[in-house]
Computed example of a mutant assay.
Amino acid sequence: MPSSPPDALKPRKRPRQARAEATVDAIFEATIQVLLAEGERRLTTTRVVERAGVSVGTMYQYFPHRQALLYAVLQRHLEHVADAVEAACERGRGRPSAEMAELLVGAFLDAKAQRLDVTQALYLIAEDLDSTALLAAAVDRNVASTAGLLASAPDADFASLPAVAFAVFSSIAGSTRVVFERGASPSALQELRRELTLMCRSYLHASRRPARGDPPSCGGW
């Protein structure tokens, strides 16, 4: 992500070799498992290293304390989602705007639903970390991807592309969080996908600049 961690939350070092990357992956996975099993208040570095099968010394080679660890886990998750949205936007360039709406909704929901447990656990901790800049950077990246996609629509021209892109992505992300925090059952996710796609399609249609030959607007009616 473009945003770097606050000094107090920076990792001591980053893994450079495959073995080190596997160790950090195990620590991250153990963190998620402890969060889900014990809750944030009972999450300690001792519990994490026991579940990960590594030593406390190994943990502290990378993360100076639990808050830095949680920040790193959240950062990886946000990067995963932004990567998925970015890739989908690249694939969708030049499609009609209605297809773009479906593509955006699907990419975001699929990335979040790939690991329901991770998404739900990280919603629990995000507000307790000094993550304002990290979350803002993630939003900016996703909005930029969305704007780039919408700019390529052959059937729509938007007077304020950044505002439209922000509204579309914020609607998707905000609605998704509400559903995930309530449990995100398969039926709820299916309904969310359908309704969000309809909403985004309607908004994009209403927000486009009229083309020549379009019927006049009815104003506020």
Rank of each mutant, 00 (worst) to 15 (best):
L124C: 14
L124N: 08
L124Q: 15
A126W: 07
E127I: 14
E127Y: 07
E127W: 09
D128M: 08
L129Q: 06
L129M: 09
D130N: 11
D130W: 02
D130H: 05
T132A: 14
A133V: 15
L134A: 14
L134Q: 08
L135M: 13
A137Y: 01
A137W: 03
A138W: 06
V139D: 05
V139R: 13
V139H: 05
D140T: 01
D140I: 01
R141T: 14
R141S: 13
V143R: 06
V143K: 05
A144Q: 12
T146A: 10
A147E: 15
G148M: 01
G148A: 01
L149M: 03
L149G: 04
L150I: 12
A151R: 12
A151L: 09
S152E: 06
A153S: 12
A153T: 07
A153D: 09
A153W: 02
P154C: 11
D155L: 05
D155Q: 01
D155N: 04
A156L: 04
A156Q: 04
A156V: 10
A156D: 12
D157T: 14
A159C: 01
S160F: 14
S160G: 05
L161Q: 05
L161S: 02
P162K: 03
V164L: 03
V164D: 03
A165M: 10
F166V: 05
F166Y: 10
F166N: 06
F169D: 08
F169K: 09
G174V: 10
G174R: 05
S175H: 07
T176R: 00
T176Y: 00
R177W: 00
V178F: 01
V178H: 01
F180K: 04
F180H: 09
R182N: 10
R182M: 14
P186T: 05
P186V: 12
P186W: 06
P186R: 10
P186D: 06
